[in-house]
């Protein structure tokens, strides 16, 4: 493991902690919502909007970790049918496409965030721009992880592994 690999793994771990916490918090605030409605007779009106932000975080940051772990659903039949050099080309093009898409997520996500920062999400009074922030950060991470994979491939040290327990 080079220091760079260690750094990438550390980033992925931080993301896992963030998304895991988001899931637990999400569950707890819904418990609070029902408790508020029935026991306190005061429905906490912020839960809905806060929950949407948490789900965005789980989705986009979690998706980036999925890229790091190579865990996304893909169709591998055709890769298996072609000769090895073509397969390598497929892998490279895939990584380039992912990196490009991640880059676009980063750039246009940032633009959206800036565009919407001025208006507020009703009922929680946080900037609307927060909605596109997880996509922006997730895009940046996808760019990073895809480029890292390409570099490893070029150095013939593909360390990316599927970590499904």
């Amino acid at each position: 493991m080079t220091p760079v690999d260690k750094l990438l793994d550390a980033i992925a771990t931080a993301c896992r902690v963030l998304t895991g916490l988001s899931l637990v918090i999400l569950t707890v605030i819904f418990g609070w919502l029902v408790f508020g409605r029935y026991v306190l007779n005061a429905t906490p009106t912020w839960v809905e909007q806060a929950a949407l932000l948490l789900v965005m975080t789980i989705a986009f940051i979690g998706a980036a970790v999925g890229v790091h772990e190579n865990a996304h659903l893909s169709v591998s039949v055709f890769r298996g049918l072609v000769p090895a050099p073509v397969r390598t080309a497929f892998v490279i093009v895939t990584d380039l496409a992912m990196a490009g898409f991640g880059g676009l997520m980063l750039v246009y996500g940032a633009k959206l965030t800036a565009f919407k920062w001025g208006s507020m999400i009703p009922l929680i009074q946080l900037p609307e721009g927060l909605r596109s922030l997880p996509l922006t950060i997730g895009g940046g991470l996808i760019l990073l992880f895809s480029l890292a994979h390409l570099t490893r491939l070029a150095l013939r040290r593909d360390l990316r592994r599927d970590t499904i327990e």
Binding site: S22, I58, A59, F60, G62, A63, G66, H72, L73
Partner: peptide, 20 residues
């Protein structure tokens, strides 16, 4: 518990990014 959380996040994010 940690494994359950992690697996849930993994499945959720995969489904969600697809829907997105």
């Amino acid at each position: 518990f940690k494994i359950a959380v992690r697996q849930s996040v993994r499945t959720t994010s995969m489904v969600m990014i697809l829907i997105a």
